[in-house]
C-alpha cells in the first residue's frame, strides 16, 4: 500500500453496527475514489507513446474515470511513472511524490519503472520502488494499452477493497 492508515482509537468498545456502517462508508468512498482517479503522468521515455495511445480514442482511459490528468501533484492522486527514471531524474520524482496529498497511489508503468528494464548501468535507477513505494507494476516494454487498462482496473479493485479512514488522528 502506498500509505499507512491510522485507525482512530475507539472511545468505547466497537459495536457490530459501527463496523457495518464503517464498512459501508469504506465501500462508498472506495467507489468514489476508484472512478475518479486523477493521474499525474510523470512521463519520461518510450512508454509515453503507449500512454498517449491508452488515453486516446482507440483505448480510452476516460471510461474508467482516469483520463483527466492533473499536472500539478497537489491536485492528483495517481502518480503514473511512465518510462525510465534515471539518477538525475530521481530527486524530481521524489519531490513530486512528496508533494502529492493522501490518498495517493503509484503505478510503475513499463519495465524500466518496474525494475530498470534492460538498462543495468550507472545511469538508470533499477526500479522506482527503490525511491518511492509502488502500488501496481505494469510489465511490458512498452506495455500494450490493454495491459495498462488491466492495471488500472486492478488498482481500482484494490482501491474499492481498501480501508478509507476519512477522519484520522492526524486530520
Amino acid at each position: 500500500m502506498a500509505r499507512r492508515a491510522i485507525p482512530i482509537a475507539a472511545a468505547q468498545p466497537r459495536s457490530n453496527a459501527f463496523d457495518y456502517l464503517s464498512t459501508k462508508k469504506d465501500e462508498l468512498v472506495g467507489w468514489a475514489r476508484k472512478f475518479s482517479l486523477f493521474p499525474y503522468p510523470f512521463v519520461t521515455a518510450c512508454c509515453a507513446m503507449e500512454f498517449m495511445a491508452v488515453s486516446s480514442s482507440p483505448y480510452d482511459t476516460d471510461r474508467f474515470g482516469a483520463a483527466l490528468p492533473r499536472f500539478s501533484p497537489r491536485q492528483s492522486d495517481l502518480l503514473m511513472v511512465v518510462g525510465t527514471v534515471t539518477h538525475k531524474q530521481a530527486p524530481i520524482l521524489l519531490k513530486v511524490y512528496e508533494q502529492m496529498c493522501e490518498p495517493k497511489w503509484v503505478m510503475a508503468f513499463g519495465a524500466c519503472a518496474t525494475s530498470g528494464g534492460f538498462y543495468q548501468n550507472y545511469a538508470a535507477v533499477a526500479g522506482i520502488d527503490r525511491i518511492i513505494p509502488v502500488d501496481i507494476y505494469v510489465p511490458g516494454c512498452p506495455p500494450r494499452p490493454e495491459t495498462v487498462i488491466d492495471a488500472i482496473m486492478m488498482l481500482q479493485d484494490r482501491i474499492a477493497r481498501d480501508h478509507h479512514p476519512i477522519v484520522t488522528e492526524t486530520f
Partner: peptide, 22 residues
C-alpha cells in the same frame, strides 16, 4: 540529460545483434 540511460556504455557489453533493442 534527464533521460541519459547510458546507451553508449551499455552497447560496449552486448553483441552487435543484442544492441538492436537498445
Amino acid at each position: 540529460g534527464y533521460l541519459h540511460r547510458g546507451f553508449e556504455k551499455e552497447c560496449e557489453s552486448h553483441t552487435w545483434t543484442n544492441v538492436i533493442p537498445y
